[in-house]
Write a protein that binds this DNA or RNA. Sequence first.
DNA 1: TTTTTTGCCGAAAACGTTTCCGAAATTAGT
DNA 2: ACTAATTTCGGAAACGTTTTCGGCAAAAAA
Lengths: 339, 339
Amino acid sequence: MKHYTIKDIAKKLNVSISTVSRAFNDKYDIKKETKDLILKTAEEMGYIPNPMAKKLSQKRSLNIGVVVPEFINEYYSEIVIAIQEFFRSKGYQVLVMQSDEDETQELTNAQTLIHNMVDGLIVAPTAGYKNMQYYQSRIKEGYPLVFLNRIEESVPVSKVVFNNTKWSFFATEHLIRQGYQKIYHLSGYKDLSVTNERVEGFKKAMDKNNIQKENYKIIETGLLAEEGMEVVEGLMFHHDIPDAFFCVNDMVAIGVMKKLKDNGYRIPEDVAVVGFTETRIAKLIIPQLTSVKQPTFEMAKKAGEILLKRITNPSAEIETQIFNGELNVRKSSVREVSN
Amino acid sequence: MKHYTIKDIAKKLNVSISTVSRAFNDKYDIKKETKDLILKTAEEMGYIPNPMAKKLSQKRSLNIGVVVPEFINEYYSEIVIAIQEFFRSKGYQVLVMQSDEDETQELTNAQTLIHNMVDGLIVAPTAGYKNMQYYQSRIKEGYPLVFLNRIEESVPVSKVVFNNTKWSFFATEHLIRQGYQKIYHLSGYKDLSVTNERVEGFKKAMDKNNIQKENYKIIETGLLAEEGMEVVEGLMFHHDIPDAFFCVNDMVAIGVMKKLKDNGYRIPEDVAVVGFTETRIAKLIIPQLTSVKQPTFEMAKKAGEILLKRITNPSAEIETQIFNGELNVRKSSVREVSN
DNA sequence: TTTTTTGCCGAAAACGTTTCCGAAATTAGT
DNA sequence: ACTAATTTCGGAAACGTTTTCGGCAAAAAA
């Protein structure tokens, strides 16, 4: 009922508040018996330390901030869950804020968390990178910060990223090997590092296989299924449906598949579709969707580890971790009758 | 760089710290000019008030806690986003924690948030309700608390819920009207209020339409697609595939559809499938999935409103809000050729 | 002019901890 | 038994705010 404080315990036991404080933070000199006594009666009284006071005097909050662009697509949900799991075991609490793919919101989120004295921050930036100057300043002040997944090269900060170029390349080459000639890449927002990298991988595969420029296209879209559908609609109007679509994510791929099937195209016989950043739905849709799986859990955990290292040891050096994934080939992109 | 405090400003301007404090919280007597001067120089110095100190002395945090069972299914993601949006405009920050459908974790989450002095808490309980005693105690202490969506009847607390019984009834009747005779309900976890309510609605529809007990079944599952698939597999083994499946959510429905289609069943000609708590994928899958749409956004906002009212006016009375949705009929459950 | 009100502000206590510093009590060393 | 070292503890400052109380001017009322 009433919130007891350290003072109440001290009064009750006729000891000083410093002694009581010592009992809880066992790094100080205190007789074992008095410590036990204090802890016991504190327990009995139902004492709960006030975290605000603790943070105020300790200058740390045991809180970690996470800023993600969204968590409506399961990718960032998984990331957040993994980060929470990691930090929970270390005694930290993870506060999550989402930016709704809006740069201004992202800045507000980061500021709010920092002003709330989170001990460190993991940020998956949204497109645009207008906030880099702000992050730069925090970094200069020594604020523990780790960037995740969407990265501005110029900022000297620890980063955890996926090797988009490489796996985009693999996914594209897979399509080429299957015999699909004309391949269009639906590329997500531009100005986004992941997008640019995937475009790069796509182009590389085209170059390496000597596919001429008139036989591929890069079409900018968003991350939603509807946007994939719109693109296909536009292409149908111009009688310009290619042999294969390589999409920025599964949702767009599913939109593409939907529109194609609605219009009588057979997948994969007529048109192949490949996604990226595999989600659970890839295995459930018919035909099953080929996609690149990212090691979401491991990436999130690594980001946590780097941040924690940086928090406990302020002079820990900046590190960049690049992760690889796997291409899960499924029916949506194989011409032969196989799995 | 250096974090300035209220003292620094006071010293610089030769005023007292109380005057500076007054300048920021304009409810106190202070001359307009000095206030402006203080605010201006504070701005120049890049002063940021320390939230911990503020919370410590004000006894409130301007933080709101939200505990959800998971946010991997887009339902709770949307809920959280809507709650954040609501509170952000009121100057509150929303801290999110997820319980991974685990009661112990849920308790830890709620405790963590409360110990961190969130001004109020919105909880969507996980199955089991073992933590009700804890919540009871908080409520007795006057802690602002709103329950969302999964409710224990016995606890006297403000609640925001969806009318599961009613819409489960409607969805089931829709199947009956379409001429499907034998209908199985895949019901999610037992012990969960939403599950029980939907089962109730399902049974009501059966009763009202005089469908005999041997022509329907209620099968307990989880919330994942895989579990829907397993059920179908089991039923196929016993040559017991019904005319229609009414599923606890879209993911299970999709699992069911997948397994059925893989085994040559046509949907909806041979078997109909209906989901619940509509997600984006419902429109994208083929055939499109009939599902019950919940007013996620409005429900979340209402929960926020009730909580805020309770925070600003501690004697605000308990209220229960029951929401209705809509049944979006799509191809997966209509026999006639229509849209 | 004297008294009362008003406007503005400073001093200081309070919020609940941690932690430095020194003192008392105990133990060890000779 | 006397000094030295060690253990254990209390006092008090500090963290950065808010807020109560009261004081002193200036303005208003008498």
